[in-house]
């Protein structure tokens, strides 16, 4: 039933299921770990904190409240928000570059962030305490974005191909720089490598809020231009003639998607494949309409990254860096898409 694929009812149903799944996953994963806590008790603890009414906590171990509110939830919510942000960013990149194989790091954002973070770690910069590394990562990512945009725009026009090529070139240069920093770092190299692999360990509430506001702002901009992005899949000449200021919208969305990715990478390190796979999976569920796709990708990205982080934190015998885990699962999936695309008919 092809026609049913993008229908309104199935979209609403999928959205509701995903939203409930996000909430369920947050509650369930909060209870998982060294100390096991029942979902209902998790809800009691959250209610107690939200309402300020301590009577919710009667009969519960007071340590649990600390475990849930100060240790687990910040980490879990960071994973949720970063997953959502990366998925939305990936959806935007695929839409703007008209390439279903694009992801949030196509323009070299990850390489820029990695370079910035590594620099901060190497020089042991701590002007801003724990925020120094995220700040340097963010600066690295934004600087990369500026260079790539500058490289790829000719008289106000940017083509998808020049953008991708510029991203590859700048990314390659930064990777070489990163290798050099690692080489210089001696015993510090372990810290750098650990950051690069991505982790949500020991996240705090301020980090949750910071990345949450960034991602929310990005999602609002993305959804505002969702329909323009649909029209842009017809190609620039068509979208211009349909009343979309393609060059402007493309630039706004590129910057939005890149800042989203930069914010996510800054707090979590480099986590690959979420931004590539999730839009793909969701496109096959709700169709290519970006207004629907952005919304369900956001929810699915949150679930997927939280699941990966929980797997690493509470299920596997030893903690595996979440970036490694997503790549190990995502890599084979990428190969599958790539193979299918090569063999597919109708893609010209």
């Amino acid at each position: 039933m092809r026609a049913k694929r993008g229908s309104e009812r199935s979209f609403i149903l999928i959205s509701i299921v995903l939203l409930l799944a996000v909430i369920g996953a947050v509650v369930a994963s909060t209870g998982m770990g060294y100390i096991k806590i029942q979902p209902l008790e998790v809800l009691q603890i959250i209610m107690a904190r939200l309402s300020g009414d301590a009577s919710f906590l009667s009969g519960l171990d007071p340590v649990w409240s600390v475990v849930v509110m100060d240790v687990r939830l910040p980490r879990i919510l960071t994973a949720v928000v970063v997953g959502a942000g990366l998925a939305v960013s990936g959806t935007l990149f695929q839409g703007i570059l008209l390439n279903p194989l694009a992801d949030p790091y196509t323009l070299g954002i990850s390489a820029g962030a990695a370079f910035g973070a590594a620099l901060a770690l190497l020089a042991n910069i701590a002007i801003l305490g724990p925020y120094s590394v995220p700040l340097f990562a963010f600066i690295g990512a934004v600087a990369t974005l500026i260079v790539v945009l500058h490289l790829s725009s000719f008289d106000g026009q940017m083509s998808a191909n020049t953008l991708i090529l510029s991203g590859v070139i700048v990314g390659a240069i930064l990777s070489a720089g990163l290798s050099f920093i690692k080489y210089m770092a001696d015993e510090q190299v372990a810290v750098i490598i650990f950051w690069l692999m991505g982790s949500f360990a020991s996240k705090t509430w301020p980090e949750v809020w910071l990345v949450l506001w960034c991602v929310l702002a990005g999602v609002v901009v993305a959804i505002f231009y969702g329909r323009d992005l649909n029209i842009m899949s017809l190609g620039q000449r068509s979208s211009d003639s349909l009343g979309v200021d393609t060059a402007r919208v493309r630039k706004i969305l590129l910057v939005t998607a890149s800042l989203l990715a930069a914010a996510c990478v800054s707090v979590s390190g480099i986590i690959g494949f979420i931004g590539l796979i999730v839009p793909h999976l969701m496109r096959s569920l709700v169709g290519p309409d970006n207004r629907k796709l952005l919304l369900v990708s956001m929810l699915a990205g949150a679930i997927l990254l939280l699941a990966a982080d929980t797997l690493s934190r509470a299920v596997l015998p030893a903690e595996v860096p979440v970036g490694v885990l997503t790549a190990l699962i995502g890599g084979p999936f990428f190969c599958y898409i790539f193979r299918k695309r090569q063999m597919g008919i109708g893609h010209d």
Binding site: S238, G287, P288
Partner: peptide
């Protein structure tokens, strides 16, 4: 337009 490629499965 001359080129009428549409990249996504609308």
């Amino acid at each position: 337009p001359q080129d009428f490629g549409i990249n996504f499965a609308f």
